[in-house]
Simulated scan of single mutants.
Amino acid sequence: MNAIAPAPNLRGDYAAAAPDYTLPQRHAAIPPADHATWRELHRRQSALFPRHAARASRDGLALLDCADGVPDLARASAALGARTGWSLVAVPGLIPEDAFFAHLAARRFPVTHWIRRPEEMDYLEEPDIFHDFLGHVPLLAHPDFADFLQGYGAHGAFAQRHGALRPMARLYWHMVEFGLIREEGGVRAYGAGILSSAAETVFATESAVPRLRFDAARVLRTEYRIDDLQPLYFVIEHYRELFALLDGLEGALLAARDAPPIPVGAVLPTDTRI
């Protein structure tokens, strides 16, 4: 989840942010070197999309037309707003859960305003604009996923009040950051953590790693790791499955809160492999 209490070692300019953690993008002031970094990252990753990315991610990326440099969030917001009513807001980086949920509930997606350094092309610890934009934003043009993400954010206050943030984070991690969908005769990636990583894009869709049929209760209890390729992935058949779980999510969050977590990478006898 792109949400955490800001810490002194985080890279973004939190002092310049408004109370809701937004700040101006100032697209015209972005240095040419940052645009060059974006173009190289976009070139490498978009080349993998035809074979590995979900149709909705490919279509959304084509709509956004962002190959030439760091995207202008205002321009992208206009395109998304016409499709699904979403807009983008620039933020310093990771932001607190309450601010993050509030933005999603209002159909605003927080996008980190800075881009990684050239020596970080393959890995960095914090999400940057490449991860947030190329990974997350294209899917906001798909109505079913867009509605799910807004509903997810609307449940954030409930999760905070009832101590169920951990199940909420698991849902976001497995199904927003690392989700797969079955389509076009195979398994394709739509999760942002996959599609913003060249290594994970191929690994998630082509390796022998366990890929399990999506089950909401299972996902809400399943722990994850943040420092390596994922040891398993969950697969949906359609984004409507994610939207459907919002009906009854409060009860499911409480049940997952009170149940023992499922260890990282564990495959259960009740799981259905894809």
Rank of each mutant, 00 (worst) to 15 (best):
A252V: 00
A17D: 09
V91Y: 01
G151Q: 10
R39V: 06
A164E: 02
T84G: 08
R43D: 09
A106T: 12
V264M: 13
Y190H: 03
L229I: 07
A259G: 01
F133L: 02
F203T: 00
P8Q: 02
A164W: 05
H142K: 07
E241L: 07
L220D: 05
F133D: 01
A157M: 08
S196G: 11
D34L: 10
R39C: 13
H35A: 09
A74E: 14
S207Q: 10
A28W: 04
A90L: 13
Y239R: 02
F130L: 10
V235S: 08
D68G: 13
R51C: 05
L254A: 04
H131C: 05
A105R: 11
V111C: 14
A208I: 04
R108K: 15
A67E: 12
M121Y: 12
L139Y: 00
A252Y: 00
M1I: 13
L10D: 09
L10S: 05
A7P: 00
P71E: 00
A74I: 08
R75E: 14
M121I: 15
G251Q: 09
L124T: 11
A3V: 05
L220V: 11
G12S: 11
P50S: 10
M175L: 14
D228F: 01
S77T: 02
V202D: 08
A29F: 05
H142N: 15
P6K: 06
R55A: 13
F234N: 01
R39E: 07
R273C: 13
G186K: 05
L88A: 03
L195N: 03
L242T: 06
L180Q: 01
M168P: 09
H174N: 07
W173T: 02
F178A: 00
L253G: 06
T270W: 10
D144E: 15
V91T: 14
I30E: 02
P110E: 03
V70N: 00
L124P: 01
R218G: 11
D228Q: 14
H136A: 04
R11H: 14
E120T: 11
Y224N: 01
